[in-house]
């Protein structure tokens, strides 16, 4: 019975969504896509297929690493601002303000060209084990994106930590939990649930800033499309495909976070 009802419900929703004007619009969109497929040049696709996949993989990898590291950094930042003493909260606040007040492109170039040009002057750095990494571009890209994500997310976590009702933490302490245990079991999960919807948006924003690393010669999907444009003198085709790829990734991200959000207990606060 329940299954049938669900099917009928879904059918009703589809018929509501598929109004006549929508069908016309979809047909027009399909026509545009077909026109693009037939009248534009796509013969370069097989040649750059492998490079493109590698580029997508790199972009996703950078996205995942910077989001996880940035979030780990954001938790202490948020905590320091929400509950820390002044000498702890002030540096965190200054850090967040600076990161949020300057363009990411500038931060990236500052780290890569600025810091990167300083290192070779010191022989002990050149001889250390870090040098092979410091000579490449991607550590700077990852560092800049991580710091940026931490800066924005630290502000979100501050609000989330401050938003957890005091009674919850007091109750945890009254149960005899240690401060650390109360933080781990009560405060952090509740703050995380509160921050999750914002986290979705921040992750999508982070995805949209990953192409910036192409400007410091990291070969991600954006750099691949630029290379195609230089090699074939085509302007629009690679860019259109690139836009489509990013839209697909965004859609998947939003869907995945929606699933996670649906799993969390929704009666908080």
């Amino acid at each position: 019975m329940a299954g049938e009802a669900a099917i009928i419900n879904a059918a009703a929703r589809t018929s509501l969504w598929l109004q006549p004007h929508r069908i016309v619009l979809i047909l027009i969109a399909l026509g545009l896509v077909l026109a693009a497929a037939f009248f534009m040049r796509w013969d370069w696709l097989p040649q750059y297929y492998a490079a493109g996949l590698l580029g997508i993989w790199r972009a996703l990898w950078i996205l995942a690493v910077t989001c996880v590291l940035g979030f780990l950094l954001a938790v202490p930042l948020g905590l320091a601002q929400a509950a820390g003493p002044f000498w702890f909260a002030a540096p965190a606040k200054v850090f967040c303000t600076i990161i949020r007040g300057t363009p990411l492109l500038l931060q990236l170039w500052l780290l890569y060209y600025g810091l990167g040009s300083l290192f070779p002057q010191y022989p002990w750095i050149r001889e250390s084990w870090m040098w092979p990494y410091l000579r490449q571009a991607w550590p700077y890209g990852v560092l800049a994106l991580t710091l940026s994500f931490a800066g924005y997310e630290g502000e979100v976590m501050r609000g989330a930590f401050a938003g957890v009702p005091k009674g919850q933490i007091e109750a945890a302490r009254a149960f005899g939990m240690s401060r650390w245990k109360a933080f781990r079991r009560i405060w952090l999960p509740q703050a995380f649930y509160r921050a999750l919807p914002t986290l979705t948006g921040e992750t999508v924003l982070q995805l949209k800033s990953t192409p910036l690393v192409a400007t410091i010669s990291v070969i991600d999907i954006f750099a691949v499309s630029s290379k195609v444009r230089q090699d074939t003198y085509l302007t629009y085709e690679p860019l259109l495909l690139l836009a489509l790829i990013y839209m697909a990734i965004t859609g998947i991200l939003v869907f995945a976070f929606g699933r996670i959000e649906a799993r969390i207990p929704n009666k908080i606060g």
Partner: peptide, 21 residues
């Protein structure tokens, strides 16, 4: 939806070239 899902950098390139052209 489209503008908010595609990176600004890609949009700027696309519109910059497409628009002037």
């Amino acid at each position: 939806t489209v503008v908010r899902a595609v990176p600004e950098l890609v949009l700027i390139l696309l519109l910059y070239y497409a628009g002037t052209d």
